[in-house]
Amino acid sequence: PAHPYDRLKTTSTDPVSDIDVTRREAYLSSEEFKEKFGMTKEAFYKLPKWKQNKFKMAVQLF
């Protein structure tokens, strides 16, 4: 299930529990994912792991 970005980011005051914290981005809706990352999930997962992590750090999901 998708969760709002505000509850997934590492600085959230009301974090979602029971998620894989190493894959926070996977819980974003497709729309919100595209808004935050500027690309689709499919394109994101084709990137090298280090680049994925760099993007995730930039949007507080790492």
Rank of each mutant, 00 (worst) to 15 (best):
P1K: 14
A2S: 15
A2N: 15
A2V: 15
A2Q: 15
H3A: 03
H3C: 15
Y5M: 03
Y5A: 03
Y5H: 07
D6V: 00
D6S: 01
D6Y: 01
D6E: 09
R7L: 09
R7T: 07
R7P: 08
R7Q: 08
R7V: 08
L8M: 05
T10D: 12
T10K: 03
T11D: 14
T11L: 03
T11M: 04
T11S: 11
S12N: 03
T13C: 15
D14R: 04
D14V: 03
P15G: 07
P15K: 04
P15I: 06
P15F: 02
P15D: 05
V16S: 03
V16R: 04
V16N: 01
V16Q: 07
S17G: 12
D18F: 08
D18E: 09
D18V: 06
D18G: 14
I19R: 02
I19N: 07
D20L: 03
D20W: 02
V21P: 12
V21E: 12
V21W: 09
V21Y: 11
T22E: 07
T22H: 10
R24V: 06
R24K: 06
E25R: 09
A26H: 05
A26D: 08
A26T: 09
Y27Q: 04
Y27E: 06
L28R: 01
L28N: 02
S29F: 05
S29G: 07
S30H: 13
S30N: 15
E31P: 06
E32V: 05
E32H: 03
E32N: 05
E32S: 06
E32F: 08
F33Y: 02
F33P: 01
K34H: 14
K34R: 13
K34E: 14
E35N: 08
E35K: 07
E35A: 11
K36L: 15
K36I: 15
K36T: 15
F37W: 02
G38Q: 10
T40M: 07
T40L: 08
T40C: 13
E42W: 10
A43K: 11
A43M: 13
A43C: 13
F44Q: 00
F44P: 00
Y45Q: 03
K46N: 12
K46M: 14
K46Y: 06
K46F: 10
L47P: 00
L47F: 05
L47H: 02
P48R: 01
P48G: 00
P48W: 03
K49M: 12
W50C: 09
W50H: 05
W50T: 02
W50V: 04
K51N: 08
K51W: 12
K51L: 15
Q52H: 00
Q52P: 00
N53K: 11
N53V: 13
N53W: 10
N53G: 04
K54F: 13
K54P: 01
K54G: 08
F55A: 13
F55D: 01
K56E: 02
K56F: 07
M57E: 11
M57V: 11
A58C: 15
A58D: 12
A58S: 11
A58N: 09
V59E: 05
V59F: 10
V59P: 01
V59I: 12
Q60D: 15
Q60R: 09
Q60N: 12
L61H: 08
L61F: 06
L61R: 04
L61N: 07
F62E: 15
F62A: 15
